[in-house]
Each structure stands twice: as structure tokens, then as C-alpha cells.
Design a protein around this nucleic acid. Structure first.
Lengths: 203, 203
DNA sequence: GTCTATATTAGGATAGAC
DNA sequence: GTCTATCCTAATATAGAC
């Protein structure tokens, strides 16, 4: 998510991101983060006073990074279906790069929603404009009518769910074959686009 | 999930289910389970030697309960689209009854996939027959052609995701209005059916 | 079978030397 | 800023009385 590991603070943030995303707040251990960063526990507390504060820093970074993506694309002036296609491409590319994000975000959101709420407000994320763009496309007859909220949930769910459920899919459908699972997830870009476009195509 | 609370073991199982589903393995506390069951910690260890063993019992029960549902419906002899409709109805009804299941299962699956793998094998759950039924429907031209795995993932994702992401949806779309969020989730039955049927309808 | 009391360990946090 | 050593609390687990 971030790059340079020159100074200690960056090393800690990178290490904490890795460990928190893998284990979640409850499962993560300060010792493990220190090991991952190549330093000792005391230094973690020197930079970030507590595990809570360190977690907040990481979670905030991730929410600010993952949530605005879709909204950005929908602001452009393409026709609506092209926007949808591009949003799906962009989002699944993001997930292919950070496949543990969905599991992590869903876990933390359910653990303590209030933490998430504060972050959304802090980052000023707003879903209203997105819903409006969808309503307008429906009014113009570009796509079938439905509650815009459902369309948003459908598209995001189709993108996100396979990544959150990856271990299940890998085991049940591909006998834990890593390459086959990866190929399946990459196919999702085409698959979700086709599925959604068929579903929203006006009669 | 289970009913009678006559004997202590049942009380413990019910309490542990409640707490584990709400907090997950990492977040759950034996004290909290004891409180919920109206007994003390020592008795937990008397019935189930360790937290791990108690968790295994709960998780096993839940996997055996939630996973076979969809497969059962697809075995009947309706036309394929009717089966899909009934599967969606049944599954979302289940989720409306146990809305915390998706978050819990996804969390635990990502925490330690091997635990989940063992349980799937123990319960003998198999996805092959489901994929075969879908392939057959495609061969008969009842629905569009696509990889059956993608269709399964799409349908399950559309059903499950809104429940796993409920706090997000509740906050972003409904200002945390409980009733509005609940109504939205109930609408999913109609919504998902329509969405999927449009997407798989042959041209 | 159920309790109280206690042991044990793990893990977050701090003190203090360098 | 970084380390070693240590503290302190929370949490799992056990001993032993009833």
C-alpha cells in the first residue's frame, strides 16, 4: 500500500498493515508486528502509544484508500454502462493487488462499526452522488429501473465477495490449486461485467 | 440455532454460539460465554476441555447447518430458473433469521482455513453435483452459458454480501436506521431473483 | 456437576540504560 | 531513537471443596 521503508515509522506502518490485514485487530500481536518490522515492541509504543492507535492509523489509511475508488470513476462523462464496466475493472484490479482487503474490512466493520463510521466521516466519503448518477441513468432509460442502492450493493458484492470467500472457493471448487484460484479471480473482471450488463440492460 | 436449554451442555452450546458468532474466535472470552450461559468459567472447561474444542463444536454445527442448504434445493425436479428462485428465497430467509452468520463464517474462514477444510470434509459437503445441474441447464439452453462456478459465486455473493456488509450499508445508505436497513435486506429476495434471472436469461 | 479460589501464561504497556 | 528488562492486567486453564 505504501512504498519506501527508509525510516522507522514507515517500516512500522508497513509491518502493521501486513499483520493487521492478515490477522485483524483481535488476532494481531504487537510482537508479531515488531518482528515483521525488524524492531522490538517498545519501539512500537514509542511511535504509536497503543495498539489501538496503531490500528486506527492503519484502518484509516485503508478505508481512505479502498472506499473512494468507485465514486471517482462514476463522475466522468462516459455513457453509464461504460462507467459501470470501468468501475468493475478498476475495482477488481485493486482487489487482485490486495486480495486480503475484503476479508479484513468486513471483519473489522463487524467487530466495531463505530470505528468505521468515524473514519468514513473523517474521509468525507458520501454515497449520495453515486446514487444520483444511477438514478439519472435510469430516468434516461439507459438501464432498467431498480432501487439504486440495490444496484450498488449488487455490483460491489459481485466484485468483493469472491475475494472475501477465497479460501472456500479455492477448496471447494479448485482443490486448493493456487493457480486455478488466481485464474478464476482474474476471470471475474469479464464475468462480472457481462453478468451485470445483462442484468441491467433495458428491454 | 438449537432450541431446548434444559441441560447445562445445551446452555453452554447456545451461549457459546451467541458469543462466538458475535465476536469470533479471537474476540470471544470464556468469561462472556459463561455469563451468557449463567454459569461459571470452570464449568465450561469441565464440559469442553478448552476454548479451541468449544469453538470447534460450534463452528462444526454452523458449517453443517449453513452449507448444505443450497444444494438440497437444486436436487428437485423443477425447471432450472424455478430452482434458482427457490434457492435464493430459502437462503435469504435463512440469512434474515441469522444475519450474523455471513460475517462470522467469512471471518473464521480467513482466520484459519484448515479448520474449515476439515469440517467440510467431515460433513461430506460436495459442490460437484451442483455444478453438474447448472451445466445441464446450460446444455439444454435454459440459461446463458458461463462457467458454472461463476454463477454459483454470483448468486451466493448477491445473497450473502449485504449481510456481511450490513453495518456499512446501514450507515452509508440509511443513516443507521434499523428498520430501513431491515426492509432493504428483506427486499433482497425479490431483488436478487430479478437481477439473476435477467442476467442468465438466454437471448 | 457445580462452585470458589488459584495457578499459569500471554500480551500490552512502561522504565530506564545507552 | 532504540534497546533490554520488567511490570501489570486480562484471559485461559486447573485444583480442590462441596
Amino acid at each position: 500500500m505504501s512504498a519506501r521503508k527508509d525510516n522507522t515509522e514507515e517500516k512500522i506502518l508497513d509491518a502493521a498493515t501486513t499483520v493487521f490485514v492478515r490477522k485483524g485487530m483481535d488476532g494481531a500481536r504487537m510482537q508479531e508486528i515488531a518482528d515483521e518490522a525488524g524492531i522490538n515492541k517498545a519501539l512500537l509504543h514509542y511511535y504509536f502509544r497503543s495498539k489501538d492507535k496503531l490500528f486506527d492509523a492503519i484502518f484509516s489509511k485503508i478505508i481512505g484508500f479502498a472506499f473512494p475508488k468507485i465514486g471517482q470513476i462514476l463522475q466522468s462523462d462516459m455513457d453509464f454502462t461504460s462507467k459501470v464496466e470501468q468501475a468493475i475493472d478498476t475495482y477488481i484490479d485493486l482487489l487482485l493487488k490486495y486480495p486480503y482487503l475484503p476479508g479484513f474490512i468486513l471483519k473489522e466493520i463487524n467487530r466495531d462499526p463505530s470505528v468505521f463510521f468515524k473514519l468514513v466521516m473523517k474521509h468525507g466519503f458520501n454515497i449520495k452522488p453515486i446514487l444520483q448518477i444511477i438514478s439519472d441513468a435510469m430516468d434516461r432509460g439507459e438501464i432498467v429501473c431498480m432501487k439504486p442502492e440495490h444496484l450498488v450493493v449488487n455490483v460491489i458484492g459481485l466484485c468483493v465477495f469472491p475475494f472475501a470467500a477465497r479460501p472456500v472457493i479455492s477448496f471447494l471448487a479448485f482443490n486448493e490449486d493456487k493457480a486455478a484460484t488466481q485464474a478464476f479471480l482474474e476471470e471475474r473482471k469479464q464475468e462480472v461485467k457481462q453478468f451485470v450488463l445483462r442484468a441491467i440492460e433495458p428491454k
